[in-house]
Amino acid sequence: MLRLTVNGRDHDLDVDPDTPLLYVLRDDLALNGARYGCGLGQCGACTVAVEGRPVLSCVTPVSVLAGRSILTLEGLGTPEQPGTIQRAFVAEQAAQCGYCIPGMIVRAHALLVQNPDPSDAEIRRSLNLNLCRCGTHLRILAAVHRAARETRGAASEDDRS
């Protein structure tokens, strides 16, 4: 038995410890946010955050994640109540097929937690591993900038209140 903490919930799982996290998320926990793109650590479609840091779930054996807190796209919001960064992607209509978007969102979220006011170059550097084939790059960048602005705006409102 292996205990995984995903989006704040504990799961006791009976899985082969070599299984990459991606397949446990998709197959055992029925989560769609982490996507299979290459299984080779080359595209970022499977990105999740582990303790705030982006991790490629397709090449990370689940055994090394026991007891650590894992965040997937689903942990950021729902279709009914999307989180700030998800709202920003909707507002910028930052998707064509959308297949790359979960990985982009989770990595950008991890960046914004570390650095709430990133420059364009910093966002590009952070997302450089994640591939998009539809050419949605500039909308993705616009969405991350918007999310950063809105997060900072909300934070400064909190300061005032």
Binding site: L31, N32, Y36, T72, T78, P79, Q86, Q93, A95, Y99
Partner: peptide, 20 residues
Amino acid sequence: SLPRLDIPAKVTGASAYVQD
């Protein structure tokens, strides 16, 4: 520019693809 119908599911991890 009506917002695309398919985007909310795609950005939140709701079932959106045959893979799901």
